[in-house]
Amino acid sequence: MDLSQITLLSLAQGLTEFLPISSSAHLILAPLLFGYELQSLAFDVAVHLGTLSAVMLYFRRELIGMTGAMLGRAQHAQAQQERRLGWLLVVATLPLLLLGLPLKALLEVLREDEHLVALVIAATTIGFGLLLWLADWRGRRVKDEYALDWKAALAIGCAQTLAIIPGTSRSGITMTAGLMLGLTREASSRFSFLLSIPTILLAGMVETRELLASPTPVDWLALGVGAMISALVAYVTIHFFLRLIERISMLPFVLYRLLLGGIILFLIL
C-alpha cells in the first residue's frame, strides 16, 4: 500500500465509522473507485483499532464511571445511573455475540462478487437512509440514554447486527433504533458511540485471530500510520457530530446516503 491509499482509507474509516453513512461501505468502495486492490485484513483491523482508541479516549470519563459503578457499590444516584447504563450496554452487545459470526460468514460470500457487493451497498445505503429519515422525522426525541430499559437496549443491539451487511452503517442503524424508541438525537448518538466500544473490540479480536492464522506478511508501518490517522479523524468527528446533531438533524446524512446510493446504481447498472 502506498501513502495515498493508506491516507484515503484511514480518512474514510475515521470519518465514517461514527457518522450514519457506513464505514464498511466506504472501505469497500474506495479501492473499487480509485483502482486500488482491496486492502488487507490487517489494515482493516488497524484502522478499526484506531477508531476504537478514539471513542474510548473521548468517553474516558463515562467509561471510568461505569466500570467503577459496575464493579463496586453504587451508593449515590449518579453511580447508580452509570451502573445501569453499563449493564444496558452489555445487554445491547448480546445479539452480536449470538448472530455476529453467521452474518460475518454471509459478508465473506458477498465480498467475492464485486458487482453484487456494490448492488447490496447501494440498496442498503438508500433503504436504511430512508429509515433513518423516518425515525428522525417521527421520533418523539424526548429521552436521554439513561431512560432506556433492557428491552430497548436489546432492540438496539438486535438492530446493530444488521450492520454487518455493507452499507447499513452500524452507527446509522443504532441511531435509527434509538430515535424510534424516543431518544433525542444526541442521546441516540451517545448510546451508539458507547455501544461501538464492545462491538469494535469484539470484532477486532475475531479479526486479529484470523490475522494471526494468516501467512500473509504484515506491513507494520502502514498499519501504524493508518491507525493514527483514523484515530485522530474519528476523535474530531465524534466531537463535532455530538455538538451539532441536535441543530442540523439527520437530514444531511440521509441526503448523502441517497446521493451515494444513486451514484453507485448509476455506475453498476
Rank of each mutant, 00 (worst) to 15 (best):
182 G>I: 06
182 G>K: 08
182 G>A: 12
182 G>C: 07
182 G>Y: 08
182 G>D: 03
183 L>K: 09
184 T>D: 12
185 R>E: 14
185 R>P: 02
189 S>N: 14
190 R>F: 10
192 S>H: 13
192 S>T: 12
193 F>M: 11
197 I>M: 10
202 L>Q: 04
203 A>I: 02
204 G>A: 05
204 G>R: 06
208 T>W: 11
209 R>G: 14
209 R>Q: 15
210 E>F: 02
210 E>G: 07
210 E>N: 13
210 E>S: 11
211 L>I: 00
213 A>E: 15
213 A>D: 15
215 P>Y: 08
215 P>D: 07
215 P>H: 12
216 T>F: 01
217 P>L: 13
217 P>V: 09
217 P>M: 10
217 P>C: 13
218 V>G: 00
218 V>N: 02
219 D>N: 15
220 W>F: 13
220 W>C: 11
223 L>N: 01
227 A>Q: 01
227 A>T: 04
228 M>N: 02
230 S>N: 09
230 S>E: 13
234 A>K: 01
235 Y>P: 02
235 Y>Q: 03
236 V>I: 15
239 H>M: 00
240 F>A: 03
240 F>L: 12
241 F>H: 08
242 L>Y: 11
243 R>D: 13
244 L>D: 10
246 E>S: 13
248 I>A: 06
248 I>H: 10
250 M>E: 02
250 M>G: 00
251 L>Q: 13
252 P>S: 07
254 V>F: 04
254 V>R: 04
256 Y>M: 10
256 Y>N: 09
